[in-house]
Each structure stands twice: as C-alpha cells, then as structure tokens.
Nucleic acid binder design. Structure first.
Lengths: 154, 154
DNA sequence: TCTACTTTGACTAATGTTGACTATTATTAT
DNA sequence: ATAATAATAGTCAACATTAGTCAAAGTAGA
C-alpha cells in the first residue's frame, strides 16, 4: 500500500513519463501547481527518489527559461566495487592511495590508461597545491568519490 | 526541449553560422532588431556564451561602420589562447566556466565525451561540496589548470 | 510514544531582460 | 584643421523569472 502521499504520487507521475522517454524536462512551478504543492516539494521528491543510486541524473537551470531535467541512466555492473571503494575512502585520501585506486580501476578496465592519467593529474598534490594537508586529503577524497559515483553509469 | 529563453536562441543562431565559418561579424543593432530585444542583450549573450572558456575570441569597434566580430579558436592549439585562458581562470573558477572549458576541449577533440564528463563530475560543486564558496572555486581553478597543463604536454 | 518521513514557506542564489547613461569612432560643417 | 554631430558599441544597475536550501511544523506507522 504505498503511494498514498503526494510525494509518492508525483514520483509515480514522473517515472511513468520516464518509462517512455530517456529524459524529462519540467518547470518546477508547473508540476507544483499541477499537484497543488509548494515548489520546494518537487526538490524533495527529486532528492529522495531520483538519486544516482537509483539510476537518475538531474540537471537544472534557474532564471528565465529555467528547468529541471531528469535523465534515466544505465547502471553498470561494477557498482559493488565502487561502493566499497567509496566506503574505504571515507573523507580523506592521500595522493598515494588515490593513485593506487586509479591504477586498480585501470586494471579492472573501468578506466582507460589515458583517463587514469588525466585524473591523476587532476588530484595530484602539485595541482591541488593546498597549504593544509588535511584539507588537501579531504578535497581529494571528495573528488575521487565524485569520480566513482560517475562511474556507476554509462 | 532546451533553449526557451531568447538568449539561448540568439546563441544558437550565432553558433549555427559559426559552424560553417571560422568567424562572424555582426552589427549589434541588426541582431537585436532581428530578435526583437534591446541591443545590450547582445552583449549579455556574448558575455555569457562566447567567452574564451567557450573557445571564442571577440573583437568590436564602435562608431560608424562598427561591428562585433566573434572568432572560434581552439584552446590548446595556440599558446597565446591557452595563456589567456589560464589568466582568465586566475585562482578562481566557477562550475559553469569549468564545464564550458571541458566542453570546448571536447569540441576540439582534445577530450572524448566520456573523459570530459568524468572530469566534470570530478570538479562538480556537488562533488567538491565545500561549505566555503571561495575555497571551492580556488580548488576548482587549481584542478583545471593542472588538467590543462597535463593535456598541453601530453 | 517515538521516529522517520513528509509538507510548508521564508529566505537565498542563479540567470535573464531592460533601459538609461557612457565611450568610441566616423562623418559633416565651419 | 577643428568642432559639432551622428552612428555605433559598452557598462551597469534595477527588475524579472526561475530553482535551491533549510529548518520548523505536521503526519503516519511501529
């Protein structure tokens, strides 16, 4: 018996459209009006039901002609590996560990050699160049988690 | 379904012309008349969509016979272009500008679509997730310069 | 009752549009 | 030549139009 509250109903509505098309582009206020809720409820629905873990990418733009676009993406098989890497990284990552992760992603054919080397330059100590060591490792962890999350889908 | 606002439409119009020729020379008031907007809107379109980050150089002249000339350039082919890009980045880079740069590198065939999108997720606001906005943009600038330098010497 | 989930709205942020005013260059009149 | 005028483009700030964030209040199920 799920689907009683308005968030579930909006979710179902959007997912029905996404069953037929790869993506959907909405105007937040229109959907809010349509279901008679405040606009920020649409953000709530998206944040709780259209996550990358569920295979959805969301982009938006503010201002005149603004929109929210939800895209359905194909999740890949290596997700368990990615999840455990994300867990291991936590909130701090040294350059050495980062390079070893990139290396194993290459070994596993998740990344090409070139992709791994470009990413290595992106998270190198010499690029980040932050005076605070802890901060540097925190930032590197976040970048790496962002990359791993991206690798979940095609 | 993208491009509902008039700025996007003018952008698309100009870029269609630039797809065929290296550069385009316009009279500001003519384009403004053509799309029924005030002349300064053309400046807005140029300032937000024809930047060096997007791979365009713009020159203009006022007075009788005045014009605005937009030229398409490749970011990594010309050391002067790369230098001015790096100068414009300075020590702070917004996500929007970063995505523009990655998009330009893709158009120039320096990066594959996949490489560009992985890098986009590495420097995304949602990945970096730093509470301090200035710090976030500083970090992004450093990462991007690191990437550009790597690609230059590759 | 307790807890997690949902709903709401005030405030914030990003982007786009407009027009008054300014700056520059070319042309015309003196 | 020089000065006035015309013909361009540039800047900036006010206003308009969207979406995002956050936390308080409400609700439903164990």
């Amino acid at each position: 018996m799920q689907g009683q509250n308005i968030s579930d109903i909006i979710e179902r509505y959007l997912k029905e459209i996404l069953a037929d098309s790869e993506e959907i582009e909405i105007r937040r206020s229109e959907i809010a009006d349509q279901f008679d809720v405040v606009p920020s409820q649409i953000n709530y629905v998206i944040k709780t039901r259209f996550t990358i873990q569920n295979g959805y990418l969301v982009e938006s733009k503010r201002g005149g002609g603004g929109y929210i676009r939800i895209e359905k993406v194909k999740l890949l098989d290596d997700i368990d590996v990615l999840d455990s890497l994300i867990r291991v990284i936590g909130d701090s990552l040294s350059e050495r560990d980062a390079i070893s992760i990139l290396g194993s992603l290459y070994e596993d054919a998740v990344l090409s050699k070139r992709e791994a080397s470009i990413l290595a330059s992106a998270i190198a100590k010499s690029s980040l160049n932050l005076s605070d060591r802890n901060l540097e490792e925190q930032v590197r962890a976040k970048i790496m988690v962002g990359i791993l999350n991206h690798l979940r889908y095609e």
